[in-house]
């Protein structure tokens, strides 16, 4: 609402002073104003957002004629609503999250799926001896509600393990695992285990993507209005971000330095390991063949099925209306 108001206001001012400015502009250097866009991260500005931070700091956005403001996310802020309402232009979220938003009537369109494998899964101490879903039978498992948990439920079901064969408790944090209160926990396999390893314990991970559960993370999305009115801005944003991905992961030391300089509160070693683990989710076989951040209808439709069965998804989802795969650059 705010942005629409601002745009109208600018237009009005523009029309009244246009003639006066035209003369002045005729003598000025011919420079086009960059398109201002706001990008809302799904999480704080750490290495998870490396590609956007690099695209910004290395001038990829500016070179693409974009004036990008990157805003950090938090547990309490869901980029979906902000982009759906038109207050912000782009957001990133995992595909289950975006699909759920669409099922609530949000006019969101996914334009790039940068982490083709979702980091959601289970992790445990190596000493637990748990290596496959079947090993969880009779064990204690801590979970918290949300994206990863839905994918884990799908993984367990696909592996023939019923939820009531496991003692599940709703609890957050790694401490329950480290203390031995539980044997496994749900979460993101790129950061949860790293924190435990840094505390001196060996871990193993069981990402749902290894068990054929299809979902993507760091999916860039915008709203239908942007697609209709400014497809060129969307294209430039996606292309510059993909460039950011390539640069960030080919120059990891520099990336780490830039991310840490942006947010000195981050722990360097933890961020280094997370960046390395993320690379495995991004630079997949498919990315090599079809391009970084590429995705197709089948991926999203398959995630919708998982959500219907395990994520309590009930609303209408028109898969074709919520994706546009034409903005991702060819490899």
């Amino acid at each position: 609402m705010r942005n629409i108001a601002t745009v109208k206001y600018t237009k009005k001012i523009g029309s009244t002073v246009a003639s006066a400015l035209a003369l002045a502009l005729a003598f000025a250097t011919p420079a086009l104003a960059n398109d201002k866009v706001v990008m809302r991260l799904p999480w704080i500005a750490n290495v998870q957002a490396a590609a956007y931070i690099i695209a910004f700091e290395k001038g990829f956005y500016r070179d693409a004629g974009l004036d990008v403001e990157i805003r950090p996310g938090s547990v309490q802020v869901n980029p979906n609503q902000l982009v759906a309402s038109g207050d912000e232009h782009f957001g990133a979220n995992d595909s289950p999250n975006i699909i759920t938003g669409v099922s609530r009537g949000m006019p969101l369109v996914a334009v790039a799926a940068c982490w083709q494998k979702h980091p959601g899964g289970l992790y445990m101490l190596e000493s637990s001896g748990i290596k496959a879903p079947k090993d969880l039978i009779g064990k204690r498992l801590a979970y918290d509600e949300g994206g990863p948990w839905t994918l884990i439920k799908a993984m367990l079901s696909k592996s023939g393990v019923k939820l009531d064969q496991i003692n599940t408790v709703n609890a957050s944090g790694n401490e329950v695992l480290m203390k031995g209160t539980v044997d496994a926990r749900s979460g993101f396999v790129i950061n949860g285990p790293v924190a435990i390893e840094l505390a001196g314990m060996k871990t193993t991970a069981m990402p749902a993507s290894d068990y054929g559960i299809s979902a993507a993370a760091e999916v860039i999305f915008t709203n239908k209005k942007m697609i209709a009115e400014k497809p060129d801005v969307v294209r430039r944003f996606v292309e510059a971000t993909v460039k950011g991905y390539k640069y960030a992961y080919s120059n990891r030391e520099e990336t780490l330095k830039i991310v840490l300089a942006n947010n000195p509160q981050l722990a360097a070693e933890q961020q280094r390991r997370q960046l390395d683990l993320q690379a495995g989710l991004i630079f997949t076989e498919r990315a090599a063949k079809q391009g970084l951040c590429s995705f197709d209808r089948q991926d999203v439709a398959s995630t919708v099925d998982v959500l219907r069965e395990f994520g309590g998804l009930t609303g209408q989802v028109d898969v074709d209306a919520m994706i546009n795969t034409s903005f991702v650059p060819a490899p």
Partner: peptide, 11 residues
Amino acid sequence: TLIVTAGYQQD
């Protein structure tokens, strides 16, 4: 818990 779950479900 109900409020948190509703938040995740964007309900």
